[in-house]
Amino acid sequence: MIQLLKVTKTYGQRQAVAGLSLDIGPGEFVVLIGPSGSGKSTTLRLINRLVEFDTGSLRFAGQDIRSFAPEALRRRMGYAIQSVGLFPHWTVEKNIATVPRLLGWPAARTAARVHELLELLQLDPAQFARRYPHELSGGQQQRVGVARALAADPEVLLMDEPFGALDPVTRLALQQELKRIHTLSGKTIVLVTHDIDEALYLGGRIVLFREGRVVQDGSPLALLTRPADGFVSDFLGRSELGLKRLGLGTVADRLRPGEPAGGDPVRSDANLREALSAFFVQGRESLPVVDAQGRPAGALHLVDLLAAHPASPPAAAAGEGA
């Protein structure tokens, strides 16, 4: 889908991207993460030609990216950023319809797509379609920004710190929405963030940058269990690696089906880190578990949670896939 081979980008004396090689396949959810100035956002902008690379090769859908007109390329790649950038004097429906209208879609098709996306992002069309951006909360504006990026059904969704300015509750809700959209659509998503917890929650694959280069490329579990070096351990939060690893498993993985237990229930799709918090809050050694519909599913025991250490995968080599 997207291939970068020995790509470089230099600003003055500073090399923002240094000989980067990266292959992103169809349907992947790849998170680019690293310190400020590490090259992750520059890489994202190289992909949709908001920035032109200096040397190397960059291909999209099997073709040299420079063979595409920039406008045509960007219509195949949705782009969502932290500042949203909605047009203030346009309604929500008109903002979402920006690219379909540029592409000359019939009015009926455009209206149907706007309605579909508002429902997908859990914004009631009857309530929100004719509102203006200033009438929306920050989280609602960000949902509209994501809907606009998806409006023309792009093959790739690029996202640069899309939830960085939101409060933690709204941020989590939108992260959950994005995971659901990825599951439903199967689109290729490339997201930049500085938040390691967001990366671990969203990414099927994490690419960690440092000084324009890839330090480690692999699954969340691979990075947590076999960090390539001390920098990776420190960036992930060396003292919290165990807790972060718990966040990758779900209650359903450690459930004892059919067992009764006292206390307030936890959901089977909650992660084990959330379950650990529930154990401490309630001061119990076992908790009842319910499924997504609230039906009893069994019990979770603290001893099972603390013993939940799946076999470690082989280390992802520093720069693997890069």
Rank of each mutant, 00 (worst) to 15 (best):
residue 85 G to K: 02
residue 85 G to A: 02
residue 89 H to A: 06
residue 90 W to M: 14
residue 93 E to Q: 15
residue 97 A to Y: 12
residue 99 V to F: 05
residue 101 R to C: 07
residue 104 G to Y: 12
residue 105 W to C: 03
residue 109 R to C: 00
residue 111 A to G: 09
residue 113 R to W: 11
residue 117 L to T: 11
residue 118 L to K: 08
residue 118 L to T: 07
residue 119 E to R: 12
residue 123 L to Q: 14
residue 124 D to N: 14
residue 125 P to E: 09
residue 126 A to H: 06
residue 129 A to Y: 06
residue 129 A to E: 08
residue 130 R to T: 13
residue 130 R to A: 13
residue 131 R to C: 00
residue 131 R to H: 01
residue 133 P to I: 11
residue 134 H to Q: 14
residue 135 E to G: 13
residue 136 L to E: 04
residue 136 L to H: 03
residue 137 S to N: 06
residue 138 G to R: 07
residue 139 G to K: 14
residue 140 Q to H: 03
residue 144 V to P: 10
residue 145 G to I: 06
residue 147 A to N: 10
residue 149 A to V: 00
residue 150 L to A: 09
residue 151 A to S: 12
residue 155 E to S: 13
residue 162 P to I: 08
residue 165 A to D: 02
residue 165 A to M: 01
residue 166 L to C: 08
residue 166 L to G: 07
residue 167 D to L: 08
residue 168 P to F: 11
residue 171 R to K: 11
residue 171 R to L: 07
residue 173 A to C: 00
residue 175 Q to V: 09
residue 175 Q to Y: 11
residue 177 E to V: 12
residue 178 L to M: 10
residue 178 L to K: 00
residue 180 R to K: 10
residue 183 T to M: 04
residue 186 G to N: 12
residue 187 K to L: 10
residue 189 I to G: 06
residue 191 L to W: 03
residue 194 H to T: 11
residue 197 D to M: 02
residue 198 E to H: 04
residue 198 E to S: 04
residue 203 G to I: 04
residue 203 G to C: 03
residue 206 I to P: 03
residue 209 F to S: 10
residue 209 F to A: 09
residue 210 R to F: 05
residue 211 E to N: 12
residue 212 G to Q: 08
residue 212 G to L: 06
residue 214 V to A: 03
residue 215 V to D: 05
residue 215 V to R: 12
